[in-house]
Design a binder for these strands. Structure first.
Lengths: 234, 234
DNA sequence: ACCTGAACACCGTTCAAGT
DNA sequence: ACCTGAACACCGTTCAAGT
């Protein structure tokens, strides 16, 4: 066991200099230990033994901090391909599911992913992976370009939905309220809802997730993108 | 012009009794005037000339308040059908676009819609409307039941995405950072991204929105739902 | 240039005490 | 039962002042 006293002149360990990397690393550690809710400017400052104002030299605001943590987490998305190459759709389902799983643990990051167009290396690697699978599946380039957006939007918002509900207590109440509302829906005011009944909330989350992804893939395969409009497309 | 002095004994107008409806109505008014960010327990309390603690007699928490405001707003979704009945898909696109437009103005409500399973009358009326159009389009009941979820999830998260970006300053920075990242993506590390280039961010929001919805509709029309699993489906 | 203490302007929610 | 003041336990961000 090494003693805490090192060769430095003072007895207390030298306070490490602040740096963007140090701040982001601390953010990561705090998130892993206590969740993203604890990743606040004030908490990080106290963790780094300084005041919150000091952090503003290195990061613009809390959103930037969360975006940095997000990209780090996206390094853990499972990008392993299934053995047979004709199962490109299965691979897309699998990697999106992995992505969603990571964000469900940290719904705040899902929010980040939805709101701040991510552009970090790990995010790009994930996009690249999905695009390459779509290409493998023979999806025309233009449709892949727009389709990958829809796939990621779907996976992100499912994570935000389920993740937030998981960490809020009343989630079960809402679920029950909806089930009751559906069951009590009058056949007069809501004929279709009332006819569908429980089928509206049937299936496991995983079943619905997979079906939703396959719906998008099937749709992308058959829906041509519109011709670029004559006006400047932006 | 009526004088402020009425027949009541005191000079100051009698403070109206608190009630859930009164609180929700105030919430609505404040939101319209100053945005959902101002709809806080403290602000509402001061608006109603009392302390924040008093409101907890009538609403459980802020989330419940926002959910009530949400359903009210959903009463404004455009549910008018297109003339010819074979254009059911156009009607779905139109009503989802209307729904998204409303939530883009109030991204906090979009967040509510995503996180708290809504079950108010106006929400149900909207679901009923979309379901009836799917039925009109000949979509099998089981697929409608799961498909309406995907359609609403999509419309809600698009609203959350664009609405939040609109009200945050840095949104343009993010957009630029992504565009730069795509342009600079090395053909070695990200071959597909680099090959697609600007096509990844082409098209107007409206074009992309409509294409996304049509993708989902096409997918729903061709993707069978799995057979209910033998285990209890919940 | 970097760092800081203190302040500004807020939050949601709880609780003991009153009416 | 309903209502309240005050407190608890926090936020993000800015700014003037220091080193």
């Amino acid at each position: 066991m090494q003693t805490a006293q090192r060769s430095s002149r003072r007895e207390r360990p030298a306070k490490p200099a602040l740096s963007r990397d140090g701040i982001v690393a601390t953010a990561q550690r705090v998130m892993r230990a206590e969740g993203l809710e604890q990743v606040t400017m004030r908490r990080l400052a106290s963790e780094l033994d300084t005041g919150p104002a000091s952090l503003y030299v290195y990061v613009q605001n809390t959103a930037e901090l969360h975006a940095a943590v997000l990209d780090e987490m996206l390094g853990h998305v499972d990008l392993s391909s299934t053995s047979s190459s004709d199962q490109w759709a299965d691979s897309i389902v699998a990697s999106l599911w992995s992505y969603t799983g990571i964000l469900v643990e940290h719904p705040g990051l899902a929010r980040s992913a939805l709101v701040t167009r991510p552009s970090g290396p790990n995010y790009l690697a994930f996009v690249e992976w999905v695009l390459s699978l779509l290409q493998l599946g023979g999806v025309p380039a233009e449709r892949s370009a727009w389709g990958v957006d829809l796939l990621l939007l779907f996976a992100t918002s499912i994570a935000l939905e389920h993740g937030t509900r998981r960490q809020v207590m009343d989630a079960h109440d809402d679920e029950e309220a909806l089930a009751r509302a559906i069951q009590q829906a009058s056949a007069e005011d809501y004929p279709t809802i009332s006819a569908l009944g429980d089928r509206l909330i049937s299936g496991s989350p995983r079943e619905r997730f997979e079906w939703h992804v396959r719906v998008i893939l099937a749709g992308v395969a058959t829906t041509p993108v519109p011709k670029p409009s004559p006006q400047a497309p932006r």
